[in-house]
Simulated scan of single mutants.
Amino acid sequence: MSDNTEEEQPLNLDIPDHLSYSEEHAWVDESVSPAIVGITEYAANQMGELVFVDLPEPGTRVEAGDEIVELESSKAVQPLVSPVSGTVRYVNHEASDDPSVITGDPYGEGWLLKIELDDDEPDLLDAAEYAKIIR
């Protein structure tokens, strides 16, 4: 869903402007309902080749700051910390069946969860703010 025109970003990573970001390297697309959550290209690159993804069940209630997804790579096991509070409505079974889709297209086919957000505004970063923390 990105046009890959962001070549001037640090480390030449794609950081789509229409998304919001957490300091824990998750992205949120709040322009749709339920909101879509995934990991950033930076996080995918840091993890290396993903070999296992443990997703929560739809209907699971999550709070911002909860560890909601376990990502396992050849390098490490890393939890995804939820950037938002709400209820998981959908999970990306394709990503759990073939974790390489996450590293191959983290902002598109590699999404992880769709969460029906609570009414409170999540405390997230815009693309420029996120770019500063990964320099």
Rank of each mutant, 00 (worst) to 15 (best):
N12K: 14
L13K: 12
E30Q: 13
V101E: 00
A127T: 00
S85Y: 03
E57K: 15
D3Q: 14
V81F: 07
T103I: 01
T87Y: 05
I39T: 04
S100E: 06
A26M: 04
L55Q: 03
D17M: 05
D105G: 09
G38H: 08
D3C: 10
Y107N: 04
L124Y: 09
M47L: 15
G48M: 05
V101P: 02
W27C: 06
Q9S: 15
D3K: 15
T87G: 03
S31Q: 12
A35L: 11
D118S: 13
E7K: 14
Y90I: 08
D123P: 07
V28K: 00
G48D: 10
E49I: 07
E30G: 10
S74H: 06
D105A: 14
T103Y: 05
G38I: 02
P58G: 06
S2R: 14
S74L: 07
L11W: 12
D3F: 09
I15V: 15
S2D: 15
D54K: 13
G65T: 11
Y42E: 06
K75E: 09
D119R: 10
D29S: 07
V88E: 03
P79H: 04
E72L: 05
S20G: 02
E6M: 14
P56E: 05
Y42H: 15
V28D: 07
S33C: 00
A64Y: 01
R61K: 13
P34Q: 06
Y130I: 09
D123W: 04
E70G: 02
L55V: 05
T60N: 07
E94C: 01
Q9P: 01
N45S: 13
Y107A: 00
E57R: 12
D118P: 01
D14I: 06
G108A: 10
A95W: 00
D14V: 11
F52N: 07
G59T: 10
E67D: 13
V32S: 11
D29R: 06
D105M: 12
L117I: 06
I68N: 01
R89T: 10
W27G: 01
I115T: 00
S85W: 07
Q46L: 13
E41L: 08
